Deep mutational scan, measured.
Amino acid sequence: MASQGTKRSYEQMETDGERQNATEIRASVGKMIDGIGRFYIQMCTELKLSDYEGRLIQNSLTIERMVLSAFDERRNKYLEEHPSAGKDPKKTGGPIYKRVDRKWMRELVLYDKEEIRRIWRQANNGDDATAGLTHMMIWHSNLNDTTYQRTRALVRTGMDPRMCSLMQGSTLPRRSGAAGAAVKGVGTMVMELIRMIKRGINDRNFWRGENGRKTRSAYERMCNILKGKFQTAAQRAMMDQVRESRNPGNAEIEDLIFLARSALILRGSVAHKSCLPACVYGPAVASGYDFEKEGYSLVGIDPFKLLQNSQVYSLIRPNENPAHKSQLVWMACNSAAFEDLRVLSFIRGTKVSPRGKLSTRGVQIASNENMDAMESSTLELRSRYWAIRTRSGGNTNQQRASAGQISVQPAFSVQRNLPFDKPTIMAAFTGNTEGRTSDMRAEIIRMMEGAKPEEMSFQGRGVFELSDERAANPIVPSFDMSNEGSYFFGDNAEEYDN
């Protein structure tokens, strides 16, 4: 993207840094990872977990959730003011799984939030270390993106479920800051804005008074975040219109849905970061690795190297396929839920299948599930090659597409044709070009129609051997075009429920 120079890199967003050079960025990201790792080690000690239990991804998720809940100030305040039966607002906890007599047992633990905050700050040299908290939120978000298709949420806001490739980060909490905003897809931002506008339509006082002023500035800020994701002048001009509207209503909703559809071809720039579970960072720190000293990046080879040398386990339900569970977590670790499966298959070195073909449910185990038949197995999170994460949407291309997802959002900077089903997408653009945004709409449609099938995206960008740390010898991959490109292809993934 041309304006790259004016933006802070995501590592800076990730670490609240002012302008830093590459070495400083690597050190501050490393410091953040160190903090998460030290916190995780301490929690495993508190909970008396064995090494194996500490490497269980379900335990990692519970521990991450506990610290996120302990620092969720708004919710904590709300819980104190609106006490609900049987919930102690000062405590947080969740299921911890232990191996007892050759069987997995679930144990519900409860801790004072104050105590968890103390352990977290102690692991982070006394700081609140917001960057580390956001990092864990993005890992949870990436896992949700890989596990669930947001059909219901899309339909509720009037969008087409086939636009799911635009929904990265749709389950990120509001408090995820600049680093969170960077990884949100165009569809996620559109959905947040539509929800806001709908509230304004239904509630006369939404934009009024002292609160209304705050609401208005939040609305304009979200519009600017979305505008910054678009790469064409016409899309940005249309966002200006939406932002400046005196009284946002149905016309703005129409414009936003139009823009979301246009992003299936004229893709937005959305950041991709490899955020790993805390149970990967903990053992690495415990083994003596100093992330701050060595430096770390979320968008280069580092996460690949770390996963190459990590042992992570997962509980497996009786009829689940461990290899499929591994694929789910591998995609989440690489922030690749909406990437082209052919690119992923090449990088991973084994075939990556669409969601609907995987015999696996989510990673988390519900409290009512029976533990008797639970097994555990090693997650295979290694890769054959590594590639640089991208934040450009890439230019655009036609490809055989599917009944489910009709476009992709690249996660890796790797040369390819970008699949999208042009006739299906263009069919949504018939007729409606009147109104105050008509010239911009016409211009956007013209650009979409001009998108050429034979153009290559990320020209000359390749993948790298894991021994090639400096990215000196790019390998331009070859793809098996007979395979499906979309992950949520004609899909039956479970729906995400809060």
Results as ranks from 00 to 15, higher is better:
residue 372 D to G: 09
residue 80 E to Y: 13
residue 75 R to Y: 09
residue 306 L to W: 03
residue 379 L to Y: 09
residue 70 A to T: 15
residue 287 S to I: 10
residue 254 E to F: 13
residue 404 G to D: 13
residue 71 F to T: 06
residue 16 D to P: 00
residue 329 V to M: 15
residue 481 M to S: 02
residue 213 R to T: 12
residue 474 P to W: 03
residue 134 T to M: 09
residue 49 L to R: 09
residue 63 I to Y: 07
residue 358 L to D: 06
residue 498 N to M: 13
residue 241 Q to M: 10
residue 90 K to E: 07
residue 459 Q to T: 11
residue 151 T to Y: 02
residue 253 I to M: 14
residue 76 N to L: 12
residue 317 R to F: 05
residue 225 I to K: 01
residue 213 R to S: 05
residue 203 D to K: 12
residue 356 G to M: 11
residue 214 K to W: 12
residue 487 Y to A: 01
residue 210 E to W: 10
residue 21 N to S: 15
residue 356 G to K: 12
residue 290 D to H: 11
residue 490 G to Q: 02
residue 236 R to T: 09
residue 79 L to E: 05
residue 244 E to T: 05
residue 403 A to W: 01
residue 146 T to F: 02
residue 257 I to Y: 08
residue 497 D to Q: 00
residue 364 Q to G: 01
residue 433 T to W: 01
residue 418 L to K: 01
residue 229 K to A: 08
residue 95 P to C: 11
residue 397 N to A: 11
residue 349 G to H: 13
residue 19 R to G: 09
residue 452 K to G: 09
residue 208 R to P: 03
residue 195 R to W: 10
residue 359 S to Y: 02
residue 296 Y to V: 07
residue 477 P to S: 01
residue 354 P to K: 04
residue 33 I to A: 14
residue 337 A to E: 06
residue 219 Y to K: 04
residue 468 D to N: 12
residue 2 A to L: 00
residue 371 M to A: 14
residue 45 T to E: 02
residue 99 R to F: 02
residue 260 A to P: 05
residue 402 S to A: 12
residue 168 Q to I: 05
residue 233 A to R: 01
residue 481 M to D: 00
residue 279 C to E: 08
residue 272 H to E: 09
residue 450 G to D: 11
residue 153 A to K: 03
residue 100 V to D: 02
residue 217 S to Y: 04
residue 309 N to G: 14
residue 334 N to W: 02
residue 148 Y to V: 04
residue 457 S to G: 15
residue 243 R to G: 05
residue 168 Q to H: 07
residue 464 F to Y: 03
residue 22 A to E: 03
residue 399 Q to S: 05
residue 490 G to L: 06
residue 194 I to L: 13
residue 292 E to V: 14
residue 305 K to N: 11
residue 79 L to G: 04
residue 360 T to D: 02
residue 224 N to T: 12
residue 463 V to Q: 02
residue 150 R to K: 12
residue 314 S to I: 05
residue 88 D to Y: 00
residue 33 I to N: 05
residue 14 E to V: 04
residue 197 I to H: 00
residue 135 H to E: 08
residue 274 S to R: 04
residue 410 P to A: 15
residue 421 D to M: 12
residue 349 G to W: 09
residue 494 E to G: 03
residue 105 M to Y: 09
residue 114 E to K: 14
residue 430 T to Q: 01
residue 8 R to T: 01
residue 107 E to K: 07
residue 231 Q to L: 14
residue 160 D to R: 03
residue 77 K to I: 13
residue 344 L to R: 02
residue 196 M to Q: 15
residue 372 D to I: 03
residue 198 K to F: 10
residue 336 A to G: 15
residue 261 R to I: 07
residue 239 M to E: 04
residue 136 M to N: 03
residue 304 F to D: 01
residue 105 M to W: 06
residue 395 N to R: 15
residue 485 G to Y: 14
residue 355 R to K: 14
residue 357 K to P: 01
residue 325 K to V: 03
residue 222 M to N: 15
residue 196 M to A: 12
residue 411 A to S: 15
residue 452 K to R: 14
residue 125 N to T: 10
residue 364 Q to I: 12
residue 303 P to S: 11
residue 38 R to L: 13
residue 142 N to E: 07
residue 114 E to T: 04
residue 372 D to P: 05
residue 483 N to A: 01
residue 199 R to Y: 13
residue 123 A to C: 14
residue 64 E to M: 09
